[in-house]
């Protein structure tokens, strides 16, 4: 290696967007297995307690579930659009779209708060007297409901933290129209949250 080649190599900042995205996907597969395990538990118990699952699901509010579905689908779109805006060099619009995404995440969480509050108010929460008096299948249904939607909502909160971090980095000039893999990876995480909800919604809210 000549001295000029060496100097060029030293000044080149190491960067691998492709590897970065591939790493993010690998992480998302671990998330698939995490939620997948819970979906398998759900499937087996539903198979064993079909009638009780149907009965327990009547307690959930389909309208709230539907509003949350629409909120997540729309936020997924705005997250994807923020990448397009970034690629086009429109940083202002990209930031605005990220704020809209965060806004929908809050709509989701506020809804979830009211939903859980109503359940707890009616005495339906893990370990409560009212719940333990119900048949096994209903106890299992509500146990899975709290664990799965709870873990999912935790992912919504993490997604919001990622996006706030991204907004800060755009402001600092660390994310630009030709360097935006972190925005892409945060959006990938957000889409996973949406994907999981696509399955949670019919499995918990739409059993009639």
């Amino acid at each position: 290696m000549s001295s000029t080649d060496h100097a060029a190599a030293v000044h080149q900042v190491h960067r691998d967007d492709y590897g970065s995205r591939l790493g993010m996907w690998l992480f998302l597969f671990t998330e698939l297995i995490l939620f997948g395990g819970l979906f398998i538990v759900y499937a087996v118990y539903r198979f064993m307690h079909q009638q009780e699952f149907h009965l327990a699901a009547q307690e959930l509010n389909t309208t709230i579930g539907l509003i949350n579905t629409i909120a997540l689908l729309t936020s997924s779109m705005t997250a994807a659009m923020s990448i397009t805006a970034m690629q086009k060099g429109n940083l202002r619009f990209s930031k605005w779209l990220i704020w809209v995404t965060i806004g929908f995440a809050f709509v989701f969480m506020v809804n979830k708060y009211f939903e859980w509050s109503a359940k707890i108010h009616h005495g339906i929460f893990p370990g409560s007297k009212d719940l333990l008096a119900k048949p096994d299948g209903e106890i299992l249904y509500f146990g899975l409901y709290y664990v799965m939607t709870g873990l999912h909502t935790f992912h919504v909160i993490v997604g919001v933290i990622f996006f706030l971090f991204i907004l800060r980095q755009i402001k600092q000039g660390k994310i630009t129209s030709d360097r935006y893999v972190r925005l892409e990876n945060s959006a990938l995480y957000w889409h996973l949250v949406d994907l999981i909800w696509i399955f949670l919604f019919p499995l918990f809210y739409l059993i009639h």
Binding site: S76, A79, A80, A187, L188, H191, I198, F199, P202
Partner: peptide, 14 residues
């Protein structure tokens, strides 16, 4: 239907 929706999210949004 959930699988169809996921296919669209994976291919286009992701």
């Amino acid at each position: 239907i959930a699988c169809i929706k996921s296919w669209y999210v994976l291919n286009y949004f992701m």
